[in-house]
Design a protein around this nucleic acid. Structure first.
Lengths: 415, 415
DNA sequence: CAATAAATAAATCCAATTGAATTATTAATT
DNA sequence: AATTAATAATTCAATTGGATTTATTTATTG
């Protein structure tokens, strides 16, 4: 047998990957415990026998693991389910009060600090608006806010705080003037390592993730995620951002901003090429309102303070929908997403109208050969970014969204 | 503590995912064995101590595993490395002759059958061209071809064949006339299950994957993959197709054709919207040649039979580069790929010119805010699809490209 | 000869499995 | 209504088997 031809072997370049580590018993147990918790979370409540069936583990193994988790207070037993032959099954569910987690959403016009419980419910929250964010003010807001919220907890509850997850935009210094910050005011952010600065002032582990990616993560875990294994996600905040879910896991990419989507080129209403964020962002609506002499401040107080702003809002929704439809077609041409999810920092009724308008606009485009995703509303809502942030510490420690054995548990807290 | 607000919990829809199974010792060993083999493959050669360091497993565990793999003939020992303090280390490398695998590339104008060894070298190959593919002829080509190649192997070698991997286009009935098939001739393919039909005639496990995805997989494993954790891949065959690599793993998506890329809308040279495949496909060049009275047949014999076709080829390269540049920008807006890899069923010098032209065209586009990938040539070449096909059986059985514990080992052979 | 590192041998550890037993139900039969 | 069979959830005890730990051997440099 002789070599006729081979692949053109460029001499193997030094691999940049440090592939995952090997498996051993300790890691296997840790993995199986996370798997059990994740299954319980996904299904709401499951008996030991259910978990055994769904995980492929033996009933005995599941029994042992779940007894430990129950003893640790992470799981609690529900009412026995009767009505079927055999011993009644005891559904186990997550103990909502087993773990708490702080989530900080830092935006260009407002910040939110929330305390979330183990099942994703917001238990307390603080809100602050500003013309533009400055590091010192943000730091003060977080430290005093955490202090304030912790004071409302008892000793035992404080001990159950898993950490703080920050959801913040990257490159705040870009587009600063467009949102009304004085020239140069946002340059300070170039030098700031928000995660490190906060970690130095807070006694909990601190995690950080792009704000739109965080919102996408919240949608994956608490929203439509269980129904769609992959989707492209749009979150319309003061700036539009997005995220990508593949195989039921967030894909954040090399630079941590996969699915940033903002700079995607789309055709504007006069046929000129524009970036998506120049059209489908709330700051655009804000400017439109201001131009027409309407006070835009209510946009930032709370999503529920929005009123129907009439014509300018109508125009903004139509323009945004046109741009979003193009973005969705472009995304669908690259990856065969099953859904395109749209959410934002606005009330439900605005979201509904944006989605419906986008569906209508998409139908007008040339879709030949494109596998179009379902265009749907997000199920989480305006607080998605804070919720996504708050879920970072919980996932890092207790849950797994992928069947991956080692996610380099220690890296998560790093960058 | 009272609930202020929660995520808007739509009642959890029945999850469609059957999350991965739990871990146990048997699976752990299987995983660790694959991990060891994959590390050896990635780095070319590694000592037991190296593997222990890189995998995080204990030296003893690695020692045991690697002795088994050596005994099974999958690994062989290289020359001891001296020059450093301590016992010299013995680099272990894959035994090229330990495993063989057939790869079938079935295209619209030609088919290739290759026998690949364990380190990705083509050891034998057969080639056939046709005006258009028909099931019976393909079946005959595969069965007689496998027979012919196996006859050249001795008994022992025949026993080491891992299987047959098929790389074929999906939906052959589309665009049939454009490539010169008589109307309706390709309709038979709607009813054909090529994988099943071949499996019924061949005594090896049979795997199948989209042809462009396969080429992408070959690039991941044997080409630039080790240097780029994620890239978008274009393979210019009679039709252009593509693939996507994320986190050093092929992402094939819901429909198995993520990164199909062909239907991506681009602006044609007259400003009209066209699909990428209508521009950057070899059949377009073929038609251009025919229109000018040039015999296009050499395009299909072998990549090395191409001659410089002059003006029409020049035009085709320019047009294709323009379209590819647009496609790359669109892809980069969705995912922050580190590279865009271009390869095709043509000789190196054509590839170089296409890539250089694409780089030039990309520079002319509006790239503000887009994280542009490096645009590079594929390192595998014209046989990428067959090589990618042939690697399917090997990966299914011996290797792992992801740190995923269970890939449902038995499903691979199914669909 | 000391130091260092690779490789191996033997003993130990520990999580998952297996098989049997227990418990709590419903369904069928008397 | 009482009894018995069937079914299913759960747990106990013993076993299995792969990874780790500890100690030892081997081969090299300085």
């Amino acid at each position: 047998m002789s070599t006729l031809d081979g692949p053109e072997h460029t001499p193997v370049p030094p691999p940049i990957l440090n592939p995952a580590g090997g498996a051993n018993q300790v890691r296997v147990r840790a993995y199986n415990e996370r798997l059990v918790l994740s299954l319980v979370r996904l299904y709401g409540a499951l008996s030991k026998a259910d978990i055994a069936r769904r995980s492929g583990l033996s009933a005995q193994t599941v029994s042992v693991i779940m007894r430990v988790l129950e003893k640790e207070g992470l799981l609690s037993r529900g009412a026995p389910v009767r009505g079927r032959v055999g011993q009644p099954s005891i559904p186990m569910h997550l103990n909502a009060d087993a773990v708490y987690s702080f989530g900080l959403k830092m935006g260009r016009r407002s910040a939110d600090l929330v305390l979330m419980d183990f099942v994703g419910r917001i238990r307390m929250q603080l809100h602050r608006t500003y013309a533009y964010p400055l590091p010192d003010e943000i730091l003060a807001f977080v430290t005093s806010g955490i202090q304030e919220l912790e004071d409302r907890l008892d000793e035992k509850q404080r001990g159950r705080i898993a950490g703080l997850g920050i959801a913040a935009p990257f490159e705040l210094w870009n587009w600063a003037e467009e949102v009304g910050a004085p020239p140069g005011a946002m340059e300070v952010w170039r030098e700031v390592d928000l995660q490190a600065d906060i970690a130095a002032r807070v006694s909990h582990p601190v995690f950080m993730q792009n704000d739109a990616t965080s919102a996408c993560g919240a949608e994956l875990v608490f929203g439509v995620g269980p129904s769609y294994p992959d989707f492209v996600y749009f979150f319309i905040g003061s700036f539009i951002g997005g995220g990508i879910v593949l195989n039921s896991a967030i894909f954040s990419g090399r630079t941590g901003t996969a699915g940033a989507i903002g700079p995607l080129p789309v055709r504007g209403k006069n046929g000129e090429t524009m970036q998506l964020l120049e059209i489908a962002s709330i700051f655009v609506l804000e400017n439109m309102l201001r131009e027409r002499g309407i006070d835009p401040e209510p946009l930032w107080y709370s999503a529920d303070d929005w009123v129907d702003f009439g014509e300018p809002m109508e125009t903004w929704i139509q323009d945004s929908a046109k741009a979003l439809a193009q973005a969705i077609v472009a995304a669908a041409s690259i990856v065969d997403f099953s859904a395109a999810v749209i959410d934002g920092g606005f009330p439900h009724w605005v979201r509904s109208r944006v989605v419906q308008a986008t569906i209508d606009e998409a139908a007008k485009l040339d879709l030949q050969g494109v596998v179009m995703p379902e265009i749907i509303e997000g199920a989480v809502g305006a607080q998605a970014r804070a919720i996504g942030g708050a879920s970072l510490p919980i996932f890092a420690r207790y849950l797994t969204d992928q069947n991956v054995l080692f996610k380099e548990v220690d890296h998560a807290e790093g960058t």
